[in-house]
Design a protein around this nucleic acid. Sequence first.
DNA 1: TATTTTAAGTCTGTTTACAAGACTTATTTT
DNA 2: AAAATAAGTCTTGTAAACAGACTTAAAATA
Lengths: 163, 163
Amino acid sequence: MSKKRFTHDECPVARSLDQIGDWWTLLIVREVLYGLHQFNEIRASLGISRAVLSERLKELTQNDILERRSDAQDKRAAQYHLTAKGRDLWPVIIAMLDWSNKHVLGETEDIVYPLNPDSNKPIADLCARDTEGNVTPLNKMVLRKGKTASPHLGARITKAFPL
Amino acid sequence: MSKKRFTHDECPVARSLDQIGDWWTLLIVREVLYGLHQFNEIRASLGISRAVLSERLKELTQNDILERRSDAQDKRAAQYHLTAKGRDLWPVIIAMLDWSNKHVLGETEDIVYPLNPDSNKPIADLCARDTEGNVTPLNKMVLRKGKTASPHLGARITKAFPL
DNA sequence: TATTTTAAGTCTGTTTACAAGACTTATTTT
DNA sequence: AAAATAAGTCTTGTAAACAGACTTAAAATA
């Protein structure tokens, strides 16, 4: 049987993994974010095979995360750029980067870190602003079921995050 | 040749994907976060094959994201629990959930959302507090190279995020 | 006590995905 | 006109994922 996809899963986390959960996908997004836009640039930087890169770029384009523009000057070339949806993956990547800096890299490794460009200070913790402007650390957040959640998922959420 | 891993990659994002980037891995973490702790519970909930779940649980345990406890009462059973490192994946999952709610789910879908338990309000945007307490949206953050970044990666970061 | 059931896996055969590199086509450079 | 290049596709071998049967120790049931 073929690899399971989560396209029709109810859970939003599974649904996002369906679009960005493949082995190379987020690294391709990262490369584009870091300024690589051409097929061969990305391929050489990642060491990914042509066939797999081609397939992933197709999926990312179909899912409206990347946009493929044919180069106006060089008609052989294509330029892959992030869409608004793709740019909104930035928080996901920063969250992973922060986690990696704290828990995966060794003590002496100081490779790359997120910085607040206004204050010029590195970030201390990830948080969220609620609809009234209150700021709270992300690790304190809880989940609530939405209006269209199935009874089954709704019950699981309520059980895991009691009111 | 075998699947490429990023264990020895320099980039922290790749290094984190090496530990949580496999197809089922984050969903397993989510299940544990949602309150499932036993092998068969997780298996039934995800519909994952026994062999793959077994392998992923081994990797997650080796990477200190999950901890395997043999059940004191029932000696057949095991309990998988998040470690501190595993619990710190919460921001990553919330970031993905938020992205999915905004960009993947349809307009009428309202399944599950993160909530600030102090104010009882849903979150509006993800942000970060810097080391001086300033709060700034994550999508404004930039990257800076750290002290031990290689010249090659350092140059890429500086180019992508000019001072 | 003997039998059945259950938890947590491992094992097997089949299908699918990935890696490496050869090949293709259109375009650009020499 | 020939060579090089961009962006792929195609082919072949290897690794991983799938469903389901099987295993082992412990627990529940008769």
